[in-house]
Computed example of a mutant assay.
Amino acid sequence: MSDDAPDSLIPYDEIVQEALRAVVGRVLGEVETTGALPGNHHFYITFKTAAPGVDIPKHLKERFPDEMTIVIQNRFWELKVTEEGFEVGLSFNQLPAKLVIPFAAITGFHDPAVNFALQFHVQGDDSEPEEHDEAENDHPVAAPVEDGSNVVSVDFSRKK
């Protein structure tokens, strides 16, 4: 694209982000319906802990004030998916916790079983994410996504 391209009056970035977040919702909805993850599939979901609608225990919010990654694999319960987001029960240091995460708060979704990943931009947050530890709820950190994988990253930067 050239620097002379006019700003779009159609919010393509928002439309695409919303559509890709629907992928996450559909995948989680399938897991909710069947009650289990198929085959070796498991999910790393990264989200902004301070985003509107996020509800996590205080000790997790204190440990992860900006961003947190959870793993949905072996030990999770009460997964409930709505149009706006999802709720899930996970264990952290053998303490059960209920997390409520709106889809709009998600910054990353990765299924290492098939090397599929989506990355999102959270509206209203132009800052760089802080480095953070993984939440370590039930699986070690995933291997990094390699070039040539099924990674979809959408970033429509508006020229000013």
Rank of each mutant, 00 (worst) to 15 (best):
L118Y: 03
V81E: 06
A105T: 02
E62C: 00
F86L: 03
L37C: 03
R26D: 10
E62M: 07
I15S: 01
H110N: 11
I10G: 00
F86E: 04
E84H: 13
D66Y: 14
F47R: 14
P11S: 03
R63Q: 15
F92T: 14
Y12W: 15
T46G: 05
Y44V: 13
S8R: 11
T33P: 03
Y12D: 06
I10S: 00
P112R: 10
T33R: 15
V81K: 04
L37Y: 10
F116A: 13
Q17L: 07
Y44W: 15
P112D: 04
V71G: 02
P6R: 14
E87G: 00
F47A: 06
D13L: 00
W77L: 04
D13H: 15
I72K: 07
E62Q: 13
V31M: 03
I56G: 00
P102L: 01
K58G: 01
I56F: 03
R26W: 10
F109P: 05
L60M: 12
A97M: 06
E30D: 14
L60F: 09
A22Y: 08
T33W: 10
F109H: 10
F43N: 08
P102K: 02
I15D: 05
I106G: 04
K48N: 08
P57N: 09
L20A: 03
L28N: 10
L28I: 02
N93I: 11
F109T: 09
V100Y: 11
L9M: 10
L28R: 12
A51P: 08
K58A: 12
I72F: 06
N74A: 10
R63E: 13
E67C: 05
A97K: 12
E83L: 09
F47L: 07
L79R: 04
E78F: 10
E78P: 01
T46A: 06
F86T: 07
N40L: 15
A104Y: 01
V88K: 13
H42G: 06
L118R: 05
L37S: 02
A5R: 15
P57K: 12
G39L: 15
A50E: 10
V16I: 08
N93A: 13
N93D: 13
V88M: 05
P65N: 03
T46W: 09
I45Y: 09
F103W: 02
Q17N: 08
E32A: 11
I106H: 09
A50K: 14
P11R: 01
L79Q: 04
P11G: 03
I72W: 07
R75T: 14
T107S: 04
T46L: 04
N74E: 09
S91T: 15
V54R: 09
T33Y: 12
E18Y: 13
I106C: 04
A105V: 02
K98V: 05
A50F: 14
Q94M: 09
I10M: 00
P38Y: 12
A105D: 03
A5S: 13
A97W: 05
A104S: 12
H59M: 09
L60Y: 11
L79S: 06
K48Q: 14
T107F: 00
